[in-house]
């Protein structure tokens, strides 16, 4: 009897139970369909995630807790979306320290870009 009254109340006032299973179904499907379409197995996905993060982490400090990494699909197109909140952009000197260990990166190239950046800034200062 109590159950019946409860059900009747739920039918009349659906906002009492905030279970929106419709959006739940949709968001779950979005994710799983994207996975199915891309057919990347979870291990591969994890490996890719780690590698991308390693590269990004060399230049900026990433908030590992807040980041999102997912396959999205839109109109039969699948795309990889990485949302990496940046805590801090690393200083040039820090970068050099790290790069010393990694010979594959062209250190000179980075120094040149830094100099160019400085050069752009300087004239502004003099004009003021």
């Amino acid at each position: 009897m109590l159950n019946m009254i409860k059900r009747l109340l739920e039918m009349l006032f659906p906002w009492n139970n905030n279970t929106n299973s419709r959006s739940h179904a949709k968001s779950r499907l979005k994710l799983i369909i994207a996975h199915d379409r891309a057919s990347i197995n979870p291990d591969m996905m994890e490996a890719m995630r780690e590698e991308i993060l390693d590269v990004v982490a060399r230049y900026v400090e990433v908030d590992r807790e807040e980041m999102e990494f997912s396959l999205c699909n839109d109109q039969r197109m699948t795309s990889l979306t990485a949302n990496l909140p940046i805590r801090q952009i690393k200083r040039m000197c820090e970068l050099k320290e790290q790069i010393k260990e990694n010979k594959s990166l062209d250190l000179q190239q980075i120094e040149i870009t830094e100099i160019e950046l400085e050069a752009e800034v300087k004239p502004n200062k003099t004009s003021i």
């Binding site: 659906p14 279970t19 299973s21 419709r22 959006s23 949709k26 979005k30 839109d74």
Partner: peptide, 17 residues
Amino acid sequence: VEENKMMSVEDVLELLG
């Protein structure tokens, strides 16, 4: 669908394309 307990036709269309 009206009570948000089932996906609508539009939802399904958006997913399947």
